[in-house]
Design a protein around this nucleic acid. Structure first.
Length: 96
DNA sequence: ATCATGACTAATG
DNA sequence: CCATTAGCCATGA
């Protein structure tokens, strides 16, 4: 039994974005814009989306905590329903 | 090098 | 509140 030694190639931009998203604490949410800014590319908002869409480890990297600037959900690789559920759950947890 | 692709945003009707 | 629109950008083909 072995785990394939796949080498995942990351772009600097990707690494930065993923890293940043990883820092978002439980129960909190931020916009794609926010991430873009933190990554030093204030306008690369759509690009951020691209990265999150390819997110290798959903759940491990809390990309579900990233929503639109206007407050609406935005998308999610595993489905918006899941995203919403997770956010509700986390809100519930941190609110208890 | 060029082009299409979005998990976006801000502005407008 | 909904629809459309132009601007913007890192990627991959």
């Amino acid at each position: 039994m072995s785990i394939n030694n796949h080498t995942i190639k990351f772009t600097e931009f990707e690494k930065k974005v993923l890293e940043i998203v990883s820092t978002i604490p439980l129960g909190q949410t931020h916009s794609y814009k926010w991430v873009a800014q933190k990554a030093g590319r204030p306008r690369a908002v759509r690009a951020v989306g691209q990265v999150l869409k390819k997110n290798p480890f959903p759940l491990l990297i809390p990309c579900h905590r990233v929503i639109k600037n206007n407050g609406s959900l935005g998308g999610y690789s595993l489905g918006c329903k899941v995203k919403k559920s997770l956010l509700d759950l986390e809100k519930f947890i941190t609110h208890s």
